[in-house]
Simulated assay, not measured.
Amino acid sequence: MDLQVFRALLSDEGQSLLAALGDAERAGDPALRHGRPAALVAAAEEQVRLREQAAAKFGEFAPRLYLTPDLVELSSHLAVADYKLDRVLAEFGVVLIDAIGLGNGLDAHLLSWSHHTTAVDPDPLAVEIAGANAPVVDAAMLFPQRQDAASFDSQGEAVFVDLMRRPGPDGAHDPESWSPPLSWALERVRTTGLGWIRLAPGLAPGAVPDLGRAAEAEWISYDGEVQELVLWFGPHGEPAPVTVRRATLLPVGASLTARGLPEPPVRPPGRYVYVPDPAVVRAGLLAELAQDVGGALLDGGGALLTSDELRHTAFATAYEVIGVATHAPEPQAPVEFAVGAADGPLTLSAVPVPLPEPRSP
């Protein structure tokens, strides 16, 4: 969809077509498409399809939003954006925010619920879509502008840079090839003195050297799916000697933070197997989780942990081992874990078990 077609979609004709195509009883009527520009029909049909796909992320807003495939694919769940807004309110307390990058989600819109937010993007379509979506999500203090980030005269007290990008064919990225490049984003945040950068969670090791020397690197998952990596800076934006790693799980709202532990021990299967949330794995916090559940890495099990104890944790799903075999178990086994043990491949069959309630402090 180009800018001209998008503007046609906002016209009376485009709005009536959108409404009709969104009505299940009328959508199949050939008369709706007859005599209308093919590009307009295609754009309206795409909006209906994208709105259906976006319902899981944007909830009640989805049926009225204007979307692109990138916006649906690369944006995070609305609850994730809301969580970050709460962090900004609690930890920054700023009034003016500069948001750089509009095409990958609704972060800037939610920021404007409580902050004067100037948002810039060089893509005119992204800017106009952001403007059209602002009243849908009550983004009263969002001011989108078409401008190249490098020439933008920042006036905010904090800056948010969205560098979420679609993974390459092998999952590798070169953040310096992006527009703007990661080095520019890091410098802009540090110059401003306060801010955060949003990145894809599956960046190749070393793609962000030293995690940008951010104060904190936070991997956020929603319902067991890692949504993004956020580099937080502040106060004063100075490079941190060591970046604190954090895994945050939503909607439960639990966070696990690095404690400087050594690599966890490795052992054969115990009575229980713990499958960590992927945010914990991405954040490199298996040692912290192993300590919390009184366990160790399962020998040959990758990121799986094992223990003879059953302890409460929000950061993993626990399974009770009901059999260990040197060959594949029967097809009816509830869950199978393939383990490349030192004395030959094993398959564990296990059943999920409810975790005990957390102990009172």
Rank of each mutant, 00 (worst) to 15 (best):
L203A: 11
V189Y: 00
E320H: 07
H115R: 14
E216F: 00
L199W: 02
K57F: 10
L106I: 08
Y222N: 11
A217Y: 00
A214T: 06
R26F: 01
R246P: 03
Q291Y: 07
G302C: 10
Y319L: 09
L186Y: 09
A31F: 01
D70F: 00
P175D: 07
V80W: 01
L3F: 03
P167S: 10
P251Y: 06
R245E: 05
L305N: 00
S11T: 09
R267W: 00
T347N: 04
G195N: 09
W113T: 12
Q4S: 13
I97P: 01
V275N: 03
H327K: 14
P30M: 04
P122V: 08
P268Q: 03
V230S: 14
L142H: 07
D12Q: 12
A119S: 05
D123S: 12
A81I: 00
D29G: 05
L85G: 01
G202V: 04
E176W: 10
Q15L: 13
V226K: 07
P181Y: 11
D29T: 07
L9M: 10
L186G: 10
S177H: 07
P209I: 03
D98H: 05
P361G: 08
P265Q: 10
A39G: 06
V120T: 06
E52Q: 15
S177K: 12
P356L: 02
G22F: 03
S177Q: 13
D82E: 14
L9P: 00
L231I: 11
V273I: 14
P268S: 08
A132T: 10
P276L: 04
A38G: 08
G35L: 10
L346F: 00
F233E: 06
A55L: 15
V94Q: 00
R165M: 11
A342G: 06
W178F: 13
L231H: 10
A254T: 07
S360Y: 01
A200L: 07
R282F: 03
E320A: 11
F6V: 02
T118A: 12
A42E: 14
